[in-house]
Amino acid sequence: MLARRIIPCLDVKDGRVVKGVSFVDLVDAGDPVQIAAAYDEAGADEVTFLDIAASHEGRDTILDVVRHTAEQVFIPLTVGGGVREVADIRRLLQAGADKVGINTAAVENPEFVREASRAFGSQCIVVAVDAKRRNPENPADGWEVYTHGGRKARGIDAIEWVQRMEAMGAGEILLTSMDQDGQKTGYDNALNRAASNVLSIPLIASGGVGELSHLYDGLVDGAADAVLAASIFHFGTFTIAETKEYLAGRGVRVRT
């Protein structure tokens, strides 16, 4: 049977990993290529790059990073950030990305997702959704979609949105809780479960991991198919091997 996936995520700015990593001895702890290779070696199931470059020059840099990564890493590589048109997707896939994440551009033009999945196949189109509770105390009030790194409310219901994105041809949904992101107190699993229940494509949970139990909760309570995390892996709080051993010990099927 299918394993649940553990996905480390790297924020890349102008070809460098923001804040670097300290989980392993690297010649250059800010080099995304070396870090991705180290995660592959450590047993990660996929690697995700989030390109947070602010300029066009920075966008070209990510293509080089992807090219070099693809020579060394033979697990799936997803790249998101700044993907606005079909040509952006083509460039990333040709550089060696396996999947491309689309966020703001999907909200601004949902047809883009249909166009992208028709052109390249659903399997490489990941729609990234940033969602925030309407009422922090009560998940029953639902979640709203945000863009621009969580600064701009879009007046769209997140659960309806993920369904719509599936209908448009998304192959996966990467769902980040803006309430939990950076808090280290766990995913918003009410959000994850509500989304997972309406989707027939895989859900990747994101935002809020501080402990291994949070990954377990995301997969079990949140019914996510995969879990994405950054800081707990980058700063060596836990290794991928420890993570998998922990999850397997609690009965979660993981690739070992």
Binding site: M1, L2, D45, G171, E172, P202
Partner: peptide
């Protein structure tokens, strides 16, 4: 897969490691 409380819906595509 699974039974009762532990029943799990299998998503399609089959995506990931098996």
């Amino acid at each position: 897969v699974g039974e009762g409380e532990h029943v799990e819906r299998l998503k399609v595509p089959h995506m990931g490691w098996n």
